[in-house]
């Protein structure tokens, strides 16, 4: 949970902050509110991992295991590499997307590596190293097959999640209907029939 807050919400923020100024109003407004929520998740996640990392050996192992598990998926959250991203050109032309996937991904890595050092945790990328020439971190090759499987709906949680959502929605139908029926009964007089 800590790793998700720190990495996944962290990646989401990098991805979404530029959208707060995008050309489509409803999206921009929603993103402003989402970013407010994400930013405290990110800090909370960091704090959780910090406490675990500096706790008992078992807790440290928990934190490291979580980071090992969620690092690559966080990088994949920025989408496919620019040369394999079908919708990017259109979104950028329309001013909805303002930075490319690779640009944002690089920004995220450069921000996050020093944070991992502060946490005393390693990142599971043997090819991760500082490139003084570029002024950025070099990243190892990302295996995007996991991303594409998840997007297609074949990820480990896709089926369970959809099932849960459908069930909750179906089981809630009688509640929504009741509220709508009550509202209809109590609406202003001109709407009611004899």
């Amino acid at each position: 949970m800590g790793a998700i807050g720190w990495l996944v919400d962290g990646a989401a923020i990098v991805n979404q902050v530029p959208l707060c100024r995008c050309s489509y109003g409803p999206y921009a407004r929603a993103m402003v509110r989402v970013c407010k929520e994400e930013s405290f998740h990110q800090r909370q996640g960091f704090e959780i991992l910090n406490t675990l990392s500096h706790g008992t050996p078992a807790q440290h192992a928990m934190a490291q295991d979580a980071v090992d598990r969620w690092w690559w998926p966080s990088l994949m959250m920025f989408g496919p590499p620019d040369d394999a991203s079908p919708n990017s050109a259109q979104s950028m032309a329309w001013g909805i997307k303002r930075f490319s996937n690779d640009q944002l991904r690089q920004r995220f890595v450069d921000m996050t590596v020093p944070q991992s050092q502060a946490l005393g945790l390693t990142l599971p990328d043997p090819d991760l190293r500082w490139n003084a020439e570029r002024g950025s971190y070099d990243i190892g090759e990302i295996d995007f097959s996991e991303l594409f499987e998840v997007i297609k709906g074949n990820g480990p949680c896709n089926a369970a999640r959809m099932n849960h959502r459908r069930t909750a929605h179906e089981e809630g139908a009688w509640v929504r209907e009741a509220a709508a029926a009550y509202a209809a009964k109590h609406r202003a007089p001109q709407a009611s029939a004899a």
Partner: peptide, 12 residues
């Protein structure tokens, strides 16, 4: 204006 939401009626 801060956004929108769904509700069955005004009090809710």
């Amino acid at each position: 204006h801060v956004g929108s939401l769904h509700a069955p009626d005004a009090p809710m």
